[in-house]
């Protein structure tokens, strides 16, 4: 399956609700509203055998906090990226982990690194950072590495 074919099929299934670009025959990028994440994911999983989550990227953008879910297909040179943008300052998106367990860890990571709330996550505990840093989001824009280093001693009691 080529990315342009899949893009066209998605567009006919979700008229006006998806916006896709194919950067090559192997890469499809689909922008959707947060509310469309579950329907589009369900459609893709039903229609493509071997469809699984590769990973997700959290990224702090000008227009909001982006959550890009990268899906790969076993046996095929295809990566489908579903792009969801959550608005700042209080970003929240539906949790994909409620649908598939492979999203659990990566959503916990993004929640800690960027301060995104994943609604409906079955296990939203801390994964990476120490409790003392729970209000710090290192992958947000404007994160001050030097100030962070200097404040470690105040926050952690060695």
């Amino acid at each position: 399956m080529e990315s342009t074919d899949l893009g066209k099929r998605l567009e006919s299934a979700f008229v006006d609700r998806v916006e896709w670009t194919a950067r090559s025959q192997k890469r499809l990028y689909v922008s959707i509203a947060p509310a469309q994440l579950y329907p589009v994911f369900d459609w893709l999983r039903e229609n493509i055998p071997g469809f699984r989550l590769g990973t997700s990227t959290g990224i702090d953008l000008r227009e909001g906090v982006g959550v890009f879910h990268h899906f790969v297909v076993n046996g095929m040179p295809l990566v489908v990226t579903l792009k969801v943008i959550a608005s700042k300052p209080d970003p929240r998106v539906p949790s994909l982990a409620a649908k598939i367990p492979s999203a659990r860890w990566i959503e916990r990571e993004m929640a800690e690194m960027l301060g995104i709330e994943f609604e409906g996550h079955p296990d939203p505990r801390r994964l990476l950072k120490a409790e003392a840093f729970s209000d710090i989001y290192p992958q947000r824009r404007g994160f001050d590495t030097r100030a962070f280093k200097e404040s470690i001693g105040e926050r952690l009691d060695f």
Binding site: N74, M76, S102
Partner: peptide
């Protein structure tokens, strides 16, 4: 597939996936 397991661990379960070929 549900847990996104890859590589020899997936191939041992009969899931035929290998980026070198795919």
């Amino acid at each position: 597939v549900d847990w996104g397991v890859v590589g020899p661990t997936a191939r041992a379960s009969g899931v035929d996936t290998d980026v070198r070929r795919d």
